[in-house]
Write a protein that binds this DNA or RNA. Sequence first.
DNA 1: GGCCAGGACACCA
DNA 2: TGGTGTCATGGC
Length: 192
Amino acid sequence: MNRQVFDLYTELYSKYGPQHWWPAETEYEVVVGAILTQNTNWKNVERAITNLKKEQCLTPEKILSLSKEKLEELIRPSGFFRQKAERLKKITKAWLNIDRKLDTMELRNYLLNIKGVGKETADSILLYALNKPIFVIDNYTRRLTKHFFNLEFKEYDQYREYFESNLPRDIEIYKEYHALIVVWAKENKYPK
DNA sequence: GGCCAGGACACCA
DNA sequence: TGGTGTCATGGC
């Protein structure tokens, strides 16, 4: 186990403090947020979530009952609103039928088979909604890996396995580390 | 005013 | 598998 991966975690944690991610009141809100935040500033996602909450629409049943046009209107601030409305409908149906007895990788495959759900989205849901030990990789994580460890991989799962194999298998650490990486990246806009 | 955000997918060679 | 275009709003 490569200590520097864990050491960086403790460093970021003591510098920025606990982030208590994911900011959501329910599991389903995590699912919705995971779709809405795809390549999108979180501020814009918050506007969309606020709209959904204001209309009492942040439940699977309500999302499914909304017309396509109405859903698009509510989530418009998050951008890509047409495809995200489509994706929300699809993932919501799948979410209602999810079999929680499946093991982590089976759940991952289940999520990845939903159109509009890629690895980062699936892993965010696994970690933050379903409390499964999966390390979430995003572009910030790739940037950080290059910046601090001078490493670059080709595949998403290579990054994921790198972090997972160099950290204690601890869900809380996975949650905090990913959040701290985002905080770090925002403070260091273009560290190269 | 331009750049980019907590990606995913289709299409092409 | 690797490269590129598309989707779209709002913050900075």
